[in-house]
């Protein structure tokens, strides 16, 4: 259970696939005009990621290593098509809003990266958890970006009016250029936070080293004193 929470935190925050690993840029930029679409895209990719991680992990001894990438792609594209068909039948408006980006989950580098780096080397259960963690991390990043773009660009959040009508809508944020720039600033903020954390960790380490060094020095001095005495 503790391991599960740790993996979850890893996927959503410390090792977020979009904000830290910088993977899966196409859907991140394209489907974040509205929070609803970002949510749909995130959950669709999560579903595919969980299924593909599970099956690739189950088949990891069966798949010949020479053709593993081809095998992964076939398995992933199968699940993507299944998700596409299910969305078409039960979430029709979302299916239309996401358009071509549902089949393009196939080439989302996050999914192939997790298959190659994690699921092919680990047992099914941790692989599924990894899928959940990375999928939620992806969804979280998408919703975060979409929130900024939808609030500033359309004055709404998840379709609800949040900014007063008098506030001018900055259409720039829903255009492609706005996508790049919003993501740029968000990743800069993440880097700032991480740099700060790294700096603090480094200072802590230095402080403890210094304390250790002083303690040793004191000890030696005391020893010397004892000797002289």
């Amino acid at each position: 259970m503790k391991g599960f929470l740790k993996q979850l935190k890893e996927g959503i925050l410390d090792n977020n696939p979009v904000l830290v690993q910088l993977l899966g840029m196409c859907p991140t930029l394209a489907t974040t005009t509205l929070v609803e679409n970002a949510f749909g895209m995130g959950l669709a990719a999560t579903a595919v990621l969980i299924c593909s991680n599970l099956f690739i992990s189950l088949l990891r001894k069966f798949i010949p290593s020479q053709v593993r990438i081809a095998a992964y792609i076939v398995i992933i594209s199968g699940f993507v098509t299944a998700v596409e068909l299910l969305m078409r039948a039960y979430f029709y408006s979302l299916y239309q809003a996401l358009g071509l980006f549902i089949p393009l989950i196939v080439v989302n580098c996050i999914i192939l990266a997790r298959a190659e780096a994690y699921a092919s080397k680990n047992k099914p259960l941790p692989s599924v958890i990894d899928g959940v963690a990375m999928g939620l991390g992806f969804t979280f990043a998408l919703v975060l970006i979409a929130s900024v773009r939808e609030i500033l660009g359309s004055g709404t959040w998840l379709g609800f009016q949040v900014l007063p009508d008098a506030y001018p809508k900055m259409t720039f944020f829903v255009l492609p250029a706005g996508a790049f720039i919003t993501l740029g600033f968000i990743i800069a903020a993440v880097q700032k936070i991480r740099n700060g954390a790294a700096e603090r960790a480094r200072l802590r380490e230095l402080a403890s080293l210094r304390a250790e060094f002083l303690a040793q020095k004191n000890e030696k001095a005391e020893e010397k004193e004892e000797m002289t005495v």
């Binding site: 010949p64 095998a71 076939v74 398995i75 199968g78």
Partner: peptide
Amino acid sequence: KLLLICAIVAGVVALV
């Protein structure tokens, strides 16, 4: 093996 994987995937998709 690859063919088998392809066939199973196609079967599952056809079912869905």
